[in-house]
Write a protein that binds this DNA or RNA. Structure first.
Length: 807
DNA sequence: TCTACTGGCACATTTGAACCGT
DNA sequence: AACGGTTCAAATGTGCCAGTAG
């Protein structure tokens, strides 16, 4: 299955934004771009600012670690929108994004499989309002919502597949329905978000956790709205989106036409005739409409395009790859095409001491990394988990370009005009977890949330001064030279430096996403250059047979492969019975990590859905975690009530999944791919990580880790037999990973272990949803539709990660 | 009263089944 | 019977707008 555990880093959710860097930048480049709202909130709550992480060191294998690059194909369109202020409609039923996120990948290993994910990162903790033609901060952000991730329907697919076509996330939908059951990405209205794309190496259908590359495109950030606020955006959308052709000036549903529709003096039949004259021609409807409208003397000439690109661009092109050809042999594991499923996985290591897997019905291809904690909002901050005060610095990321926007006394919010040069898209080109304490990806741990003055003022504050880049940094050493470790000051200078690329938000050193490439965060054109990799430390560990570019492996391959003597005994893991054909659509994949009774496809298909009302999840699969890693009190089963959400006092709960406590549980022991051509039962041998492998102490190189006896992976040609995966490679940056409670793990008991700033992390369930329409050998759209129209949830209710019934 | 949100509407596009001819 | 092309209807996507709720 999409073992979530296979993708622990994702479980981090928004907080991962901090690990996103412009890899082509030098040291300052790895400063976190944006802390998620969650991060911000967490930071605001904590009274124990994290110590700055060690100064990043130059990766020894820089350049080798990763050459994965991602380009935003429709970047020009995005930039147009960004220059105006991109708004995305969100509805209860879900709304697609436009412009759609269409990217091009390169640098992947053609033989390896990758999973592409899309998620949204809250850019700040503010709520906005469109006033006076500008966006202004009007208060604090809403409570954190369930983190959901959209899995590209092609996932998993080989690198060759991804690189051979443009990758479109046009099927991703945004919703403001917090109770959404379709798996759409849930967002708050009037909030700012930044789309983020993850490329995760999927070693096989059941295991994720290879190198992870996260990308963001600054120009793709947007504000969510339920109705367009800025007319310019509306015009842009109408001009650019084929679905909105009817609203174009030459369309039959245009304002102009509507206005005149009932007042037209001309005989409607005339227009009809005009249209009929061309009805048989190849003229587009727009052309016909134009002709029809042309007959209306009261209408002025119709502009071709508001921005000049609307007519030339084909913004709504589908991915070259027909959906039916797309492969999706990932999400369906354990079910038939007729039975799409939700997979909810919970990381409970350290607390519940087990990993629970929920198989739940679903109809979309999204994965929810439910780190949402319904109780989380209740924080020491008061009524809001977020700092209600508008953070000038938070908006600084939207630093307006003086050359583009006129200074406004009201400090209007202006999106920056995008530079002609593409921004580096890579935020985080690195393994999910840094293997070294110097890993840039851990920069987020440098978030030293200053005690931001909580303003209760209801007066709207300017989102951003159009004349200056606001930063909370008292002083920025130098443009582009601000170290991510620069001590932060809790004070917020009213007058930020004239220009500041590095922006610190709530103490989080970051860069303006809108920073022109030629500045501190100067980006290298994506298309032509391979930005230097700032990401990782040589301590990254290569997967077997992975090219050096992909060697960084800091993420446990899979939580599902938790090795534990007890686990192996109680839940024999069947060997993978299938080969990973590129686009095979597994109709019934036995679930290796499941008890034998549940491993069969039939069992999975008939899986009983959790009964929310009863407070128990019947379909949950609990995988005990090694005792030594267990928290003092561990639940024996996955129960809704067992979700131990981080206390509101947690400094930064979002990091918990990465906590040392979680890693040991993942104890990669069973993930030793070998040269052997068959897949043996997952070894459940518990490979306790020696103290030396403790993330906190991790400064050693891969070579320092004795290879673990490789296990046969099977027919995965991509797996190099010669390079066994080293579980110990899963390292954690001390500053990033919340140290385990000393009592929980010996590895954290060392003197070098920083004080435990985080309580044992709670569960971080992952919910996977599949869109049956994608890549199945047989058409599923019809079935999908039937489900949709039924408005019924025959699958039953299921428990969201927050413990509440979703449906 | 204002703001944000919702649902219905009309229009356009997409999708897939049905039909037809080879 | 199989295949390919065309047609058509339904589903879906989109912005607009009136109404509603807070």
């Amino acid at each position: 299955m999409l073992s979530v555990e296979m993708y622990p880093s994702l479980a981090l959710g928004h907080q991962r934004v901090g690990d996103c860097y412009y890899r082509d930048r030098e040291p300052p480049a790895h400063m976190p771009l944006y802390p998620s709202s969650y991060d911000m909130a967490a930071g605001a709550m904590t009274s124990h600012p994290l110590a700055p992480p060690p100064a990043p060191s130059e990766p020894t294998c820089k350049g080798q670690q990763d050459s994965v690059k991602m380009e935003l194909e429709n970047g020009s369109l995005w930039k147009h929108f960004c220059s105006v202020g991109t708004e995305m409609i969100i509805t209860k039923k879900g709304r697609r994004m436009f412009p759609q996120l269409r990217v091009k990948l390169s640098g992947l290993n053609p033989a390896l499989r990758y999973i592409l994910l899309l998620d949204m990162v809250a850019m700040d903790t503010s709520r906005y309002r469109f006033q006076g033609d500008t966006w202004q901060v009007v208060g604090g952000a809403e409570a954190r919502l369930p983190d959901r991730v959209f899995i590209h329907p092609d996932s998993p697919a080989t690198g060759a597949h991804w690189q051979s076509r443009s990758i479109s996330f046009h099927r991703a939908k945004l919703t403001n329905n917090t109770l959404d059951t379709q798996g759409y990405i849930i967002l708050h209205s009037l909030h700012r978000y930044q789309p983020r794309v993850h490329v995760i190496e999927a070693r096989d259908v059941l295991r994720w956790g290879g190198g992870q590359h996260s990308f963001i495109f600054p120009e793709t950030q947007f504000l969510t709205v339920t109705a367009y606020q800025n007319n310019k955006i509306t015009e842009l959308k109408i001009q650019s989106n084929p679905f909105a052709k009817g609203f174009r000036e030459d369309g039959m549903n245009s304002k102009r036409y509507r206005t005149h529709r009932h007042t037209l003096s001309c005989d409607p039949c005339d227009s009809t005739e005009l249209l009929s004259q061309y009805s048989s021609s190849s003229s587009s409807s727009s052309d016909l409409q134009s002709l029809a409208l042309a007959s209306l003397p009261s209408l002025p000439p119709l502009p071709e395009s508001v921005c000049g690109y609307g007519s030339n661009e084909t913004p709504f092109q589908e991915s070259p790859l027909p959906e039916q050809q797309q492969a999706l042999d990932l999400v369906v594991i354990g079910t038939t095409p007729l039975v799409s499923c939700y997979v909810s996985v919970t990381f409970t290591a350290g607390v519940n001491n087990e990993i629970c897997i929920l198989f739940l019905p679903c109809r979309s291809v999204t994965m929810s990394l439910s780190t949402y904690n319904g109780t989380y909002p209740a924080t020491p901050l008061g009524s809001s988990s977020f700092d209600p005060a508008p953070h000038p610095q938070s908006s600084s990321s939207y630093r307006s370009d003086p050359s583009i926007s006129q200074p406004s006394p009201t400090s209007t919010f202006n999106y920056p005009s995008m530079a002609t040069t593409d921004y580096p898209s890579i935020l985080s080109s690195s393994p999910t977890l840094p293997s070294s304490t110097t890993s840039p990806s851990l920069q987020q741990t440098s978030f030293t949330y200053p005690t931001v003055p909580i303003s209760t003022s209801s007066s709207p504050k300017p989102l951003l001064s159009s004349t200056s880049c606001q930063s909370i940094l008292p002083s920025i050493p130098q443009q582009g030279l601000l170290s991510p470790h620069t001590p932060t000051n809790t004070s917020f200078p009213s007058l930020p430096p004239p220009s500041c690329q590095p922006i610190q938000q709530n103490g989080v050193t970051t860069h303006s996403m809108l920073t022109p490439p030629n500045q501190a965060l100067q980006a290298v054109p994506i298309s032509n250059q391979t930005p230097p990799l700032l990401v990782f430390n040589p301590t990254a560990y290569p997967y077997p047979n992975l090219p050096l570019s992909n060697v960084i492996q800091t993420t446990p391959p899979s939580f599902f492969n938790l090795s534990s003597p007890s686990t192996s005994q109680s839940h024999p893991v069947p060997s993978l019975p299938y080969s990973l054909s590129s686009h095979s659509a597994p109709l019934s994949y036995p679930f290796p990590s499941l008890p034998s009774s549940l491993s069969s496809s039939s069992s999975v298909q008939n899986w009983t859905l959790p009964n929310v009302s009863s407070g128990s999840v019947h379909s949950a699969v609990s995988i005990p975690i090694p005792t030594q890693m267990q928290a003092p009190s561990v639940g024996s089963s996955f129960l809704p009530s067992s979700f131990t959400h981080p206390p509101s006092s947690l400094p930064n709960p979002v990091y918990q999944p990465s906590s040392c406590s979680a890693i040991p549980s993942v104890s990669v022991a069973s993930f030793q791919p070998s040269a052997s051509s068959h897949i043996p039962p997952f070894s459940l041998t518990n490979h306790s990580l020696p103290p030396t492998t403790c993330p906190q102490n991790q400064t050693t190189t891969p070579s320092s880790y004795p290879p673990i006896a490789p296990t046969e992976i099977g027919s995965f040609s991509q797996f190099n037999s010669g390079a066994p995966y080293l579980p110990e490679m899963v390292l954690h940056h001390p500053s990033l990973l919340p140290p385990l409670d000393p009592s929980l793990s010996s590895c954290v008991s060392s003197s070098s272990t920083p004080p435990a700033l985080y309580p044992p992390f709670s569960s971080y369930p992952l919910r996977l949803c599949q869109d049956p329409r994608s890549s199945f050998p047989i058409p599923l759209r019809h079935m999908y539709r039937q489900h949709q129209h039924g408005h019924t949830h025959a699958q039953g209710s299921y428990l969201d990660m927050s413990g509440r019934a979703v449906f």
